[in-house]
Simulated assay, not measured.
Amino acid sequence: MSAPVVAAASLRAEHLSREYPSGEGRVLALAPFTHTFPSGLTAVVGPSGSGKSTLLNLLAGFDRPTTGQVWVGGTDLTALSEAQRADFRLAHYGFVFQNHNLVGILSAQENVEFPLTLAGVPPRERQARARELLAQVGLENRAGHLPSQLSGGEAQRVAIARALAGNPAVLLADEPTGNLDTRTGERILALLQGAAGAGRTVVLITHDRDIAARADHHLSVLDGVVTPA
Rank of each mutant, 00 (worst) to 15 (best):
M1I: 11
S2R: 14
P4D: 12
V6R: 00
A9I: 10
S10K: 06
R12E: 06
E14I: 09
E14Q: 15
H15Y: 15
R18S: 02
E19V: 14
Y20E: 04
S22C: 14
G23H: 15
V27N: 15
L28N: 10
L28C: 14
A31Q: 13
P32T: 02
F33Q: 04
H35W: 15
G40E: 01
S48W: 12
L56Y: 01
L58Q: 00
L58Y: 03
L59T: 00
G61C: 09
R64T: 09
G68V: 07
W71I: 03
V72A: 04
D76I: 13
T78N: 07
A79L: 14
E82Y: 11
A83F: 12
Q84V: 13
A86Q: 03
D87K: 08
L90N: 06
A91F: 11
Y93G: 03
G94N: 03
I105V: 14
I105K: 09
S107L: 04
A108D: 05
Q109C: 14
T117Y: 12
L118G: 13
V121K: 07
P122Y: 13
R129L: 10
R129N: 02
A130C: 13
G138E: 05
L139C: 06
R142K: 15
H145S: 10
P147L: 11
P147Q: 02
S151K: 09
A155Q: 05
I160A: 09
A161M: 08
A163F: 04
N167D: 13
L171N: 00
L171W: 02
D181W: 15
T184E: 04
L192D: 00
G194Y: 12
A196C: 07
R200P: 01
R200L: 10
V202Y: 00
V202G: 00
V203M: 05
V203T: 03
V203Q: 01
L204R: 01
I205F: 04
H207Q: 12
H207F: 08
H207P: 06
R209H: 14
A213D: 11
A215F: 15
H218A: 08
G224W: 02
P228Y: 07
